[in-house]
Design a protein around this nucleic acid. Structure first.
Lengths: 180, 180
DNA sequence: TTCCTCATGTAATTCGTTACATGATTGC
DNA sequence: GCAATCATGTAACGAATTACATGAGGAA
């Protein structure tokens, strides 16, 4: 178990949806789950290799003609994946560079702090806009996804929306307070 | 610049408040900023050493009698720290193990998903309770902190409260939706 | 023919956590 | 005398990012 980590399960999870290549996995991360997960090639390929060595995934050779390496999850892999799913999610120690800066900002000018919060607010409003687009897309293509599928795409998205909204309202509260 | 990272600035930030030891820095992290930042000894001590080598901090020998190593930020260190403060906070790629699991949970029973969300809700309600206590403490000891100080402690705390509340309401929304 | 996307991988480095190791001091 | 806290550090490991390296195929 040379490389054992979160990536491991992210990969198994994607392969549990459907067999695909390392490249596809990266795309899935960037397109579908980007707002709460990220992966990079430098990690995907080595983990893919070690998962195969452990027998949790296997090569699928449809047409061996090309250089693509398509993988599928094995029974053993599915078992390990489901076990992981059922475990409670690990507590993740928070690390917000923004809050760290803010909490240390006593020596900055009021105006600098204002603009710091303002730009943070804008970032989150932009996020909100993106999420809105995604949500609209899911709504419009209701027929594409069945009700179950929709929940698993929609739920994390709602999470993003609600969180971003709460950040925006926090920003407003702080911008107000800072002028007093 | 052997060890250059966030820890670097977290340490400079704490030392910019007041000179202290590595041990004190750890305590500050655990007590004051734990809800949005964490550090561990294994990282603090080496970084402390390299910051000293770079001349950003220096030893303070009050009474050399004891084994304590008290550090203070230097002018050079303060300069670098303020420069960092003024830069916009780096975008941090999100990684939520909980959302990753949820989005991959299509093969779990509805009841399992319910309890997954429920326990997540409880975690955040507990957080909320802790934040409430801290907030009350600050309110009660208003005289201890001047208005400026209060803002920099209170603002991140409010952030935590607002965020946790939004998570709780998301959980309720999802628990409701899952039964439909 | 040039650029973009597809596609796979390695190496170097940095970053962060955990375990290990040690010992003084303080309060009960 | 014992436990808890104070106090400092190293080593090993594991995780994650970035840079590097390569090349095919298709579109403009």
């Amino acid at each position: 178990m040379s490389v054992k980590n979160k990536t491991r399960y992210a990969i198994l999870g994607v392969l549990n949806v459907s067999p695909c290549t390392g490249y596809d996995i990266k795309k899935y991360c960037d397109k579908i789950i980007a707002h709460f997960w990220n992966e990079n090639y430098g990690h995907i390929y080595p983990v893919l290799k070690s998962l195969q060595e452990e027998g949790l995934i296997e090569r699928v050779e449809e047409e061996i003609q090309d250089r693509k390496k398509k993988y599928a999850i094995t029974t053993k892999g599915r078992e390990e994946f489901l076990n992981w799913l059922k475990e409670p999610a690990n507590y993740q120690p928070a690390r917000s560079e923004f809050l760290l800066k803010l909490s240390f900002s006593k020596d900055l000018k009021r105006e600098e702090i204002r603009s710091m919060i303002l730009s943070y607010k804008e970032d989150h409003m932009k996020k909100l806009k993106d999420y809105g687009k995604m949500e609209a897309y899911i709504e419009q293509n209701q027929t594409t996804f069945d009700k179950d599928q929709r929940f698993f795409i929609h739920a994390p998205l709602r999470y993003g929306i609600i969180s971003a909204k709460s950040v925006v309202s926090w920003c407003d509260e702080m911008l107000n307070e800072i002028d007093l």
